[in-house]
Simulated scan of single mutants.
Amino acid sequence: MKVLYIEDDPRAAAELCELGWQQGDIIAVETDGQSGLRRAGIEAFDVIIMDRMLGDSDGLALVARLRDSGVSTPVLMLSALGRTSDRAEGLEAGADDYLAKPFEALELLARIRALHRRASGREHSAVILYGAFECHVKARTAFRSNRHLALSPREFELFRYFMENAGEVITREMLLFDVWNMAFDPQTNVVDVNIGRLRRKLEEGFDSPALETVWGSGYRLLEGRAEPRTEDQAP
């Protein structure tokens, strides 16, 4: 990916550039809002990461100006302000996602890649394949090793989201925002309960796991390559 990072903290900018280099991405850095605004208007980027509180500019005003000028590049806003009202302000100003500081590098990477996929339209593929899994989007059917998985509507939406972000760590907040359309955490176990149900259906009858819990971060879909158990092999 080619990413524009508008950040006035040199240490934060250097850390993300190093991380991007390790992943094979190009991270262009602008240290003030006005320079970032100009560059976003003349160069093509896959994702823009913008700090909300810049020395010369307000990130909310900047992203609003970007949208007014016709720049549709996905914007991920970073901020130390993490209340529900702060997140709502960022999204209403035109940001596509909002991540409160401090955050884990894995989550930041997962979010910008998810934004990139969403913008490129790959999530609209008729069939998504990953390892032993198949997700037939229009038919709303799921398979593992050619075995049909009987998923409820909510479980299918979860499965589809994991397939769209296959192999990446998906946080609870990402699921709430993208699957449940919630810009806040309702402080319930709705995600955990539904993940548990989905995991059981993905793994029932197979000897290898399908969903990995990444402690302190979230969940990751595994490739699930394994032959189904036969009746003689069933425990």
Rank of each mutant, 00 (worst) to 15 (best):
L19I: 02
A88L: 13
G33Y: 01
R87D: 12
L37H: 06
I26F: 02
R38H: 09
G20F: 02
I26E: 15
I49W: 03
G90V: 05
I27P: 00
R38Q: 04
A93V: 02
S57C: 13
A44P: 02
G33M: 04
D58N: 07
Q34T: 10
G20V: 02
G36Q: 08
P74L: 04
E30R: 14
D51E: 14
L54A: 08
G20N: 10
C17F: 00
G33W: 01
E7S: 12
G33A: 10
V75M: 09
S57N: 08
S85D: 14
G59H: 02
R67N: 06
G41L: 12
L37P: 00
D56W: 01
D58S: 11
G82F: 07
A88P: 00
T73N: 11
D68T: 13
R67K: 12
L66I: 03
D9T: 09
T84Y: 08
Q22A: 13
E43L: 04
T73D: 06
R39L: 13
L37W: 06
M50E: 12
G82W: 07
V75F: 06
L66K: 00
D56N: 06
A64M: 05
P10Q: 10
R87S: 08
D25V: 01
A14S: 13
I27V: 14
D32M: 02
L60Q: 06
I42L: 09
D56C: 03
I6V: 15
P74I: 01
I49C: 15
A61S: 14
G24A: 10
E15I: 07
S57P: 00
G24E: 13
G24T: 04
D58L: 01
T31Q: 14
G55M: 02
D32K: 02
G41A: 14
E18H: 00
D58A: 03
G82R: 11
I6D: 10
D68F: 11
P74Q: 07
A80P: 00
A64V: 02
A40D: 05
L81Y: 08
L60S: 05
A12P: 00
G55K: 02
L62T: 04
E30L: 03
A40W: 02
I26L: 12
F45S: 12
D68N: 12
M50N: 08
R67V: 03
A14T: 07
R38E: 00
R65T: 06
M53I: 10
A93S: 13
V47F: 06
D51N: 14
G20C: 08
A64Y: 02
D86Y: 09
T84I: 09
I48W: 03
L62M: 10
D8Q: 09
T31E: 04
P10F: 09
S69E: 13
A80V: 03
L91N: 07
S79D: 05
L16E: 11
L91P: 03
S72K: 10
T31I: 08
D86P: 14
R52W: 03
G24H: 06
D86M: 13
R67E: 00
A40E: 04
I6W: 05
A40H: 04
E7D: 07
A88E: 15
M53S: 14
A80F: 04
I26R: 12
G70E: 14
L37K: 05
V63M: 05
A40I: 01
I42G: 05
R39T: 09
A13N: 05
G24D: 13
L62Q: 05
V47G: 12
E15V: 07
M53N: 14
L76Q: 09
D25G: 05
L62S: 06
I49S: 11
